[in-house]
Amino acid sequence: MKEKMLSFHDVKHIYHTVRGEVTATENLTFTVEKGEFVALIGPSGCGKSTLLSLAAGLLTPSEGEVSRRGSIGYMLQRDELFPWRTIEKNIRLPLEVQHRLDSESLERARTLAEKYGLGEFLQSYPSQLSGGMRQRAALIRTLAFDPDVLLLDEPFSALDYQTRLLVTQDVAKIIRSEGKTALLVTHDISEAISLASRVVVLTKRPARVAAEHELCFDGENDPLRRRENKQFSEWFELLWKELNA
């Protein structure tokens, strides 16, 4: 029996505006287990970002329960690096916020940065880095305080196609080698297939689970190799149908 890191149980969330109310999600139940890489895909406008805010505890559900074990690291669509801080100070940001600037944490952050090729850029400013490198720095920032679960909100959607494939490759490798649990939200089917160990398909608003699939690819975890695998197109076809059902 694996450890449940994050679980949604019968979650309902209503958005209130002056013009009325919108039910973003209803009867939503799914779990993320330790070490899993789960991708949530859904038609656009199904409230995916709301789900991440719920998962991160930034929103409280109207009904139902979201439970999480351990700390959460959040990675957004854009890198959101602070332009007035050097890469090193950007990476330190979560440690600063959580008052954990002890030598051990700092050393950890530094080692991570060096291990993943940011060593020579530590004193650079974000504007001096390429889009791919910036996104990598954003990931290292997320990993710096050693969160138990990573929440990824379409973290590659702001990049051009070429960079996107490279960064996806990058991020997949880093997340797996650090043994992290991750929840990815995306509308990009091929991204979900190339990255995830499990895909959860959501319905239109109000979002609930339409289908769930384990992707095994015979143990192949490399995103580019997965894209070349013949199972890839089969999965794509299936998920496409389920998304547009």
Binding site: I72, Y74, L76, E80, F82, L93, P94, V97, Q98
Partner: peptide, 23 residues
Amino acid sequence: NKILLLRSMGASKFQILKKLVIP
């Protein structure tokens, strides 16, 4: 989005002010 990022790290309102809004 940067405010969201800081909040997800558990930042207080004062930290958001000091680390993001002012700079």
